[in-house]
Simulated scan of single mutants.
Amino acid sequence: MTEQEVRRYLRQMKEEDSERAFKGFYDLTYDRLFRIAYYYVRDEDAAQEIVLDVFMRLWQMRNRLPAVNSIEDYCFVLTKNASLNYLERENRQSPLPAEHLPEPTDTASSPEETLISEELFARYVKALDRLPQRCREVFIRIREERQSYAQVAEALGISVKTVDAQLQKATTRLRKMLLPDEGDE
């Protein structure tokens, strides 16, 4: 997703009340927002519902969106908060009996560790979005969906060697985007 494309869609949504521009914005950002929601709720149906709710909210606020400095970060925060609200509602509606509650652990994350983890995840999602489409698709199917090389090759109509090459390419590019250069230290 490029900032220019997003800004163009946001302008059209505001100035022309354009549903077509909103559809373009939706197509450009849905996968990323879905990955964010799924990261938190670990349920595909719930993640889809959350993202659709976020898009409804974005459409309702379309006149204010062009003024947002970083729409990427704004959408990330909206999706994260909607996911956390969903989890809170689910926990309130279905309290677990005491025997099913998880045991407290001494390895609870500090607020700083949680923030670092979320920032790293946001960087990962952005980096993943910048990969070429085929690389991204192969990477997600193998690393996130846990499909085999053969399954991915069959689904995409490519050879297993091509799957391997695309995965290596994706991994190398992600590493360069996420890890600081050795010389920068």
Score class of each variant (00 low, 15 high):
Leu78Lys: 07
Glu15Met: 14
Asp31Gln: 10
Pro95Cys: 12
Val125Pro: 12
Asn63Gln: 15
Pro102Ser: 11
Ala47Arg: 04
Ser18Gly: 11
Arg57Thr: 15
Asp181Ile: 00
Tyr124Glu: 06
Asp17Cys: 11
Arg134Phe: 01
Leu78Ile: 03
Met177Thr: 09
Lys176Pro: 03
Arg136Ala: 10
Lys126Gln: 13
Met61Asp: 15
Asp106Thr: 15
Arg141Gln: 12
Val138Trp: 01
Arg7Phe: 00
Ser109Phe: 05
Lys161Tyr: 13
Leu84Tyr: 13
Asn91Cys: 12
Tyr74Asp: 01
Lys176Thr: 09
Arg57Asp: 13
Val54Glu: 04
Arg20Ser: 13
Tyr74Leu: 04
Pro180Ala: 10
Ala122Thr: 11
Arg130Leu: 11
Gly157Gln: 02
Met177Gln: 15
Ala67Val: 07
Arg64Gln: 14
Leu10Ser: 11
Ala155Phe: 01
Tyr30Leu: 10
Thr171Ser: 09
Leu33Pro: 02
Ala170Tyr: 00
Met56Tyr: 06
Gln60Pro: 00
Tyr9His: 14
Ala153Ile: 01
Arg64Val: 06
Trp59Gly: 00
Asp181Gln: 13
Lys161Pro: 06
Pro132Arg: 09
Ala153Gly: 01
Leu115Lys: 12
Phe34Leu: 11
Glu112Asn: 06
Ala37Phe: 02
Arg32Thr: 11
Gln166Arg: 09
Asp53Tyr: 00
Met177Ala: 15
Leu10Phe: 09
Gln93Ala: 13
Lys176Ile: 08
Tyr74His: 08
Tyr30Ala: 13
Thr79Lys: 02
Val54Asn: 05
Glu16Cys: 05
Arg57Trp: 04
Asp129Met: 05
Asn91Met: 15
Leu179Ala: 08
Tyr40Ala: 15
Gln4Cys: 12
Asp129Pro: 06
Asn63Pro: 05
Thr162Ser: 11
Leu78Val: 04
Asp164Glu: 13
Leu178Lys: 10
Ile142Arg: 09
Arg42Pro: 06
Ser18Trp: 05
Gln60Asp: 15
Ala165Pro: 02
Ser94Met: 10
Glu90Ile: 03
Arg8Glu: 13
Asp31Lys: 04
Ser70Asn: 14
Phe25Gly: 06
Tyr74Asn: 01
Gln48Ile: 03
Cys135Gln: 12
Asn81Tyr: 10
Glu90Trp: 00
Ala46Trp: 02
Phe25Asn: 07
Ala47Phe: 03
Lys80Gly: 04
Val160Ile: 07
Tyr26Lys: 02
Thr79Asp: 07
Ala47Ile: 05
Arg57Pro: 01
Arg11Ser: 14
Leu78Tyr: 07
Met56Glu: 01
Lys14Ser: 10
